[in-house]
Each structure stands twice: as structure tokens, then as C-alpha cells.
Design a protein around this nucleic acid. Structure first.
Lengths: 218, 218
DNA sequence: TCCAAATTTGAATGACTATTCTAAAATAGA
DNA sequence: TCTATTTTAGAATAGTCATTCAAATTTGGA
């Protein structure tokens, strides 16, 4: 959660307080949506839990949809930025893939509530995608997939990977990661999600049968 | 859809007609739930689309939940039986994995509507798992995962696969398959889903970098 | 053909909830 | 301190929808 104490003199106190409250509502809504799902969460609950009146919530967000889509959009956007940044810092395709996966694991390890919403959204697409914001979210999601596909294509081009269809490989790898996170959250394991990275990479690069991936220093 | 013409003299006409109508309602509901999602689908719509009155639907199913859970349960059960059967016919762990994946691809290729419901259900779990039927569904789902994990464990024991944690590998592989099917349905590709089997197997057994899987005759 | 039992219907019920409205409270400048 | 403006609260509104009900229809045997 953003810190109320992070003063930004350029914005003015009122604007800053307003931003902070807006963010507070989003955080409360995220928790509720994750716990009970979109339809089971009522505006009255969001109001109660954030200690605002109903109408106040509506002064921040035009509708329930908007709250949901906004929080989804803002965090998907953040994740995408983190992924892009991680790629820039890596050199080889293999390192880039490692970086992407590491970022995702770390991100969802720290944003469990958000994962439930993120993972579930693809179903709701039919209902919410007509909204402009819904389309934006879908585009971001596709962009994330494309980035991975490009890295794989690069690896194939460099002769580092076999000639697989890159887009399909991106889908498979994303699906693996998603399923792993899902299982991790559901089982409430103590172990860190990121600790699974070496096994995943070994599997992705060499498969069930292939040689063992030589571990580089962490 | 089951055939009204498949006479079963042991059951009697009334029983058979009733079964057929029950199945008809389930099929209609499946289509609607897949198209619009659980909450967006109303009982009135199900009644209209199946050409029954509201109250008639309620003579077949106690509630909307029950329709949803029943159709989910019956098809998951069918899929599980198909998977078990496929495994019995295969010899090596590698062949068993191939068989499992092939069965799943074929099944969802022929049951697209059902896939949307199946894939989405994991989120709804929170809401519907308190029902007895909901728990049963979850158990079936876990059983499917366990079967795959056992095959992998067998392969590791036989020295066929590397020493990976079997349960985690099962999760990764299931996630891959699920994502692939999801993408295939969304993109409405013409190509058969099962045509992707060789690539998937190559990836699972040898990874992005490893040697190419020697293709056996189909 | 006729009747009792079973089945079907869709309108009525009751509960729920997103959104709006009105009045009260807080705020900030003078 | 006073007052115009902004913000808040929560009750009222309006609509939706799962479920039930009372009446009508169909069924199958006599």
C-alpha cells in the first residue's frame, strides 16, 4: 500500500489525500474480490471495509465494474513494466526467460490477492471486455505473451533453442507458471515461490528426460 | 447429446424420457454457462432455451447451483474415466503421458463449451465447494493430477526421467495443456487441437534446448 | 370416453444489491 | 467565528432474479 507519508509537494495536500484514499479503496476491493469473487462482493461491503459511505465510493469510482477493472489494469501494467525492465537487464535469451519467470514469481508472491483476480479475469472477459478499460487489459495481457514469444524467437534465431513455434511455446510456458502459482497459493506452502525457479528452468530448457541444467551462481 | 432413440428396455419409457430431458437441460445449460458465465445466465434463460417452464426445470434440479455442479461433475468424471482407460492401454511412462495428453486434447476439442466451465471453475471454488457435490468435483480434479504425478514418479523410478518433484511436474504439465487449449479455443483456429501433440511432447521430454524427440509412427 | 394422478406452466414472491438522493458534517478561506 | 463549498453518510430507489405457487394441462389406465 502506498504510504500516506510520502509527501509530494508538487501535488498539494488535498490531491495527495485523495489519491491515497482512492488507492486505499482499491486495496480493500482487491482483498474482497480475491476472497469472494466479483459477484459475491457487494458495494456495501467495500464501503464498510474501507470505512467510507456508499456514495463516497461512488465519488471515486463511477461503478463497481470500474473499481474492478481499474485495479486489474493498474497492476497488470505494473507487472508488465517490471517484466520489460528485467529483460533489458538480461543478455541471452535464456537469461531473459529466467528473468521473466523470476519477476513473475516474485510479483505474485507479494501479490497473492491480485493473482486470484488476474487468473480469473480471463473468464469474465466476455462480460467486461466491451468496456474500453477491459480491452486495454486484454491488450496488456497479450503484450506480455508477445514479449515472451519474441525472446523465444530470438533464441531460435541464435540457434540456442530448437525450432518450436514461439507463440505456442510462450503459451505453454505462461500456462506452466500460472498453474504453479495457483497451486502454491492454494496449498499455502511456507516455502518461497521463487525457490522453485531452478526446477522450472531445468524443465523448460531440458525437459523431463534431457540432461541436467548446469546451475549458474544465483 | 445422448440419443432419444437409444432404447433401454430395462428402464421403461417414462424413466428414459425423463433421463433424456434431464440431459437436454444440462446440455442447454452448459452452452449458456459457457457463453455468458454462471452469474450472467438466468434460470429464465435456461427454461426458455430448453423450452420448459421454470418450475419444470426445478423438478429436475433443486437449484441453479445444482445444474452447474452436476454438469461439471458428470463431465469431469467422464474425462477421468477416459484418462484412466488410456493409461491402462499404454506401457511405458512416456507412452502414458502421451496418452493422457492426447485424451485431454481430444476431449476438449469435442467439448469446447465444457472447457470454459471447467477452466473457470477453480475460481468459483470458494463459493461452491461447500456443497457436497462441489467437494466431489474438487476431489476428481485432484485425482487427475495425482494420476499424472504417479506416472511421472514411475518414470523417475525407472530411470526414464530426471529426478523432478512429480507433483510439481504434474502441475506444470497440466497448466501447459490447459493454457494451450484455452488459447486454441479463444483463437478459433481451424487446425485440430490434437495436431499439437508432437510439439508438446517434444517440449515436455526434451525442453527448449534438448535433442529432438524421435517421432514414433502415429 | 372419463377420471385421478402426475406433470407443466409462467406469474407472483421475496430477497438482494448497484446506484442515486437528500440531508448532515467537515472544510477552508475571510 | 462565520459561511459557502466540498465531502460524506446511509436511507431510499429501482431493477434483477432464484425460487415457489396455484391453476391448467397432459397422461395412462378403466
Amino acid at each position: 500500500m502506498e504510504n500516506l507519508n510520502s509527501h509530494n509537494m508538487a501535488l498539494g495536500r488535498r490531491k495527495q489525500e485523495r489519491n491515497w484514499r482512492r488507492q486505499y479503496i482499491l486495496n480493500v476491493a482487491e482483498r474482497l474480490f480475491a476472497q469472494k469473487g466479483y459477484y459475491q462482493t457487494t458495494m456495501a461491503e467495500i464501503a464498510k471495509a474501507s470505512e467510507f459511505g456508499m456514495a463516497t465510493i461512488y465519488r471515486f469510482f463511477k461503478s463497481k465494474d470500474k473499481i474492478y477493472l481499474t485495479l486489474l489494469h493498474e497492476k497488470i501494467d505494473l507487472l508488465l513494466r517490471l517484466v520489460k525492465q528485467a529483460i533489458e537487464e538480461a543478455q541471452t535469451p535464456l537469461e531473459k526467460i529466467k528473468a521473466i519467470i523470476q519477476v513473475k514469481l516474485k510479483f505474485f508472491q507479494e501479490n497473492r490477492d491480485f493473482f486470484r483476480i488476474y487468473a480469473l479475469h480471463r473468464q469474465n472477459i466476455a462480460v467486461l471486455v466491451r468496456e474500453e478499460l477491459g480491452k486495454k487489459i486484454d491488450r496488456k495481457y497479450q503484450e506480455g505473451l508477445s514479449i515472451l514469444a519474441q525472446v523465444i524467437e530470438e533464441g531460435i534465431f541464435q540457434g540456442e533453442f530448437k525450432k518450436f513455434p514461439p507463440k505456442e511455446m510462450a503459451v505453454l510456458i505462461s500456462g506452466m507458471i500460472q498453474a504453479l502459482i495457483h497451486e502454491w497459493i492454494k496449498s499455502e506452502e511456507e516455502v518461497q515461490l521463487t525457490s522453485k525457479l531452478p526446477v522450472i528452468l531445468d524443465f523448460i530448457f531440458y525437459g523431463l528426460k534431457g540432461e541436467k541444467l548446469q546451475r549458474e551462481g544465483r
